[in-house]
Structures are given as C-alpha cells and as structure tokens.
Amino acid sequence: MVQPLGIKFEESLTKKIKPPQDQLGFGVYFTDHMYIIDYAFEKGWHQPRIVPYQPIVLDPAAKIFHYGQSIFEGLKAYKTEDGRILLFRPQKNIERLNRSNDRLNIPQLDESVFFDALKQLISVDQDWIPTEPGTSLYIRPFVFATQPALGLSPSTNYQFIIIMSPVGAYYPEGVNPVKIFVEPEYVRAVIGGVGEAKTAGNYAAALKSQESAKEKGYTQVLWLDGVHRKYIEEVGSMNVFFKINGTVHTPSLNGSILDGITRNSIIQLLKHWNISIEERTISIEELYEAGKDGFLEEAFGTGTAAVISPIGELNWCDEKLVIKNGRTGELSQRLYEALSGIQKGTMPDPFGWMVEVRVK
C-alpha cells in the first residue's frame, strides 16, 4: 500500500470483514480508516492524518456537547465497470461545507485540504467501494468544536473528520414510492435561522416528528414553513419536487431550505430535457387542490442518500393524498435512471459532474 503524500498514515492492523453487498443497508458498516485534521486558533488547520477507524476521545467540556457547533456533508464514490472511481460533484460539497462553516462561525476549510483528504482516504480504502446495482461508498465529512470551555463563545479548536461507509438503498422501499407525513405542529427552521446550513441541530430537531410519523406508518416528514405553517419546504432528508399539469415545481431556496446538490442536478437535467421546471413558493393547500383536481401527476424527493425517492402518499391533518395510485411515475423513474447512470459511468455526463479519483 502506498503511503499518502503529505498526510501521516497509520495502517489498520485489523481488517474488517466486508458485509455482503445485498445486506449493506445505509450507514451501518464503516471502512478500515478515517481522516482527521485539527484546527487551533494559533496554528490554523494542521496535522492531517489517516488512522484506523476508531472512537473519538473528547473532554466532557468540549463545546460541541454544549453549544452544538457542528456541520457535516454527504457525498458518494462509485466504481465503474472498467474499474475507475468517480465522485459526484465534490466541488459543490466543499462549497456548501464552507457556507455551513460560515453560518456556524467555524473556520473555513481550504479546498485543497478537502480534496486531498478525499482522494487519499478513498485510495487507502478503495476495496470497500461496492459494485452491485444501487450501491456506492457513502462519504461523511464533518466538523465539530473541541475546545474544553463552558463559556458561550465560538470554539478556538475543531476537528475535521471523514468516515466512509459502503451503502445500499437509503429507504427500505428502494426506488419504490414512500409515504410522507406532513408535520402540522413542529417546524424545522425559519428564514434567518440555520435551515440552509447542514448542521446537526437541524436533524436533531426533526427526530421527534420523524418517530411520530413512523409510528403512523410513514417513512418521513414533510416540513412546512415556520411562520405561516402552510408553505412546503423539504422532507427530513430530501428536497422535494411535484409534477403538476405537465410542469415540475420545487420550493425556491429562501434561507430555511437546504441547497441540495441532487436538487440542483435534477433541475439541470430537467432543463436539459426541455421539461418545464419552476422554483417557487408552494402551499400545501395548493398541492392538495391539484391532487383533488387530478393535476398532481408525480411527486418525488431528491438527496445524496436516496438519489430519487418517489412519493406515493401524503398525509396532512389526517387527510390522505395518494399520488400516481401509489406507483412510481415515469419522470421519477427516468430521472433516477439518468442520474444513477451518470454517477456509475454507464451514461454520458453532459454536465461534467463526475470527477475521477486516480488511485495507486
């Protein structure tokens, strides 16, 4: 094995047994190594290293535990039929990571540090990339505050870590339609808050509603805006799209919605196919009216984890709205096949999205 240049490398002496590719689930298994780099106010980002996957040791007073300074990203690596390793739009991930850093008052991370870390870690654990249809290597970069102090102020110390996990489908339904519960009481974010940042607290705030939805037989929660409680924002782990009377609609980015990379890619694909797409404010009442009048043709969520997830049913205030008779729509299927094909290298990439990782 070639030692990564410029990064201290400690090889794992105990190799994990790789799970069968048809039993991966999502985020259950982890590769042999992880990447770590430290930040100190006096030194900046320093001491990059790849080490065996292991627990993190932190002081009980570390600020992450008390004030929640933490952000993360998610992206995937794919192995093509001819053995190449491809990343999907990693430049967008570092851009969004630094926007999240800025909102949480965390120091920016240099692009070269981010990309070197990705390439070196993938090179070391490249044998973990699964190749079966619907599988990929999920990559989770994250930053958190480590300064041991209880004063309410930004931390002076941080760690940036990358871990990786071979994954299958995010939802048990795979690319079959999921059922979504429209949250009537709680809100995820408001304009001016941290809704557009990929910060841990946003997802913690969603857990209570998510568990409640699952108890009712629903896979995820659809969030409405935090002021009027009527405008559609996003699903717990996805941006959301609706095909109404031939035109695709998605909530416009307003500061409380995550700027999804898959969302952006789907918009580009639709425009490339000359399919009408509108980014605008959409009320839940309007959506239900479109469903009752027969104009709501399809609905689907988009995200790194799920890629495309068709929506077969909504439940808002105990009123169920079945979409496409609970079946996957033609456009949802076409988008899934196109995007997955580009990511796997089996279809042309007219946008230049895929970045090859050259490993030794």
Rank of each mutant, 00 (worst) to 15 (best):
G6T: 02
I7E: 06
E11G: 10
P20H: 12
P20E: 12
Q21N: 12
G25I: 05
F26W: 11
G27R: 05
G27W: 01
M34V: 07
Y35I: 03
P48S: 10
L58F: 02
D59Y: 04
A61Q: 14
A62P: 00
Q69E: 14
G74Q: 05
E81R: 13
E81D: 13
L86S: 07
P90V: 12
Q91L: 11
I94G: 08
L97M: 15
N101K: 05
R103A: 08
I106R: 04
P107D: 07
F115K: 06
K119N: 15
L121D: 02
I122L: 10
Q126G: 02
W128C: 07
I129Y: 08
I129L: 03
I129K: 04
I139G: 02
F144T: 00
A145G: 03
A145M: 00
Q147E: 15
S153H: 11
S153C: 04
T156M: 11
N157P: 02
Y158E: 01
Q159Y: 00
Q159K: 15
F160S: 01
I163L: 11
P166N: 05
A169T: 14
P172H: 04
V175M: 09
V175D: 10
N176T: 10
N176W: 01
N176D: 14
I180N: 06
F181N: 01
E183C: 02
E183K: 03
P184V: 04
Y186L: 13
Y186H: 13
R188A: 00
R188Y: 05
I191N: 05
G195D: 03
E196C: 13
T199F: 04
T199Y: 03
T199I: 10
N202I: 04
E211S: 08
L224W: 05
D225E: 07
G226Q: 09
R229Q: 14
K230M: 11
K230G: 12
Y231E: 11
E234L: 11
V240P: 07
K243A: 09
N245Q: 13
G246F: 08
G246K: 07
L253I: 15
G255C: 02
D259S: 14
T262Q: 00
N264F: 08
N264R: 15
L269G: 02
L270E: 09
I275V: 14
S276L: 08
I284Q: 10
E285D: 15
E285C: 00
L287A: 09
L287P: 13
Y288V: 04
E289R: 12
E289Q: 14
G291H: 14
D293A: 15
G294E: 12
T302V: 11
G303R: 02
T304I: 01
A306W: 05
A306F: 02
A306I: 06
I308T: 05
S309W: 00
P310L: 10
L314E: 03
W316Y: 15
I323K: 09
N325L: 05
R327L: 13
T328R: 13
G329A: 06
G329M: 10
L331D: 03
Q333N: 12
Q333F: 08
S340D: 13
Q343W: 08
M347Q: 15
M347K: 15
D349Y: 03
D349C: 06
P350L: 06
G352L: 12
W353A: 10
R358T: 15
V359Q: 04
K360V: 09
